[in-house]
Amino acid sequence: MAKSAYQPPRQSTLGQIIDSVVILGAVFLALWLPIAANLAGADTKQILPPGVTVAENADGSKTWTGLTWEGLGQNATMQAQWEKLGYSIEDAAGLITVWFDYEINWLLALVTAVVVIGYFAILLYYSEREYKEVIAEKFDR
């Protein structure tokens, strides 16, 4: 016997507004929260060349000692380009001495991998269930 098509409930205007607000809120939470909580962005560390020290002053500026272009790993051409860009050795040192921290936390990597794979597995599982309903209604009625 042919099955009748699924008739979805009609969504009220208020329901549509609530759903729109929920979606907008979720987007902002997911994107804004990491930025606000300082969780977005790169994991970095500062590595100073031998003999170089840096101290932060009360006004936020930094005082460097022991800086040389050579010590910062810059050859004469690089030095010339930095200067052409309007960078002093202190300005350049602020960029050159910051490095990405690629030390791998394998436990976190494993957890992330499980979450990503689990996410796709759930997606495919529920999608398949829903897809069978779609196909049944489209072709078997």
Binding site: L29, A30, L33, A40, A42, D43, F100, T112, V115, I122
Partner: peptide
Amino acid sequence: GFGTQLFVMIGFYIFIS
């Protein structure tokens, strides 16, 4: 380098799913 951001984004997609 951006592991936390990746984690939060996947969390978002799980929520909306």
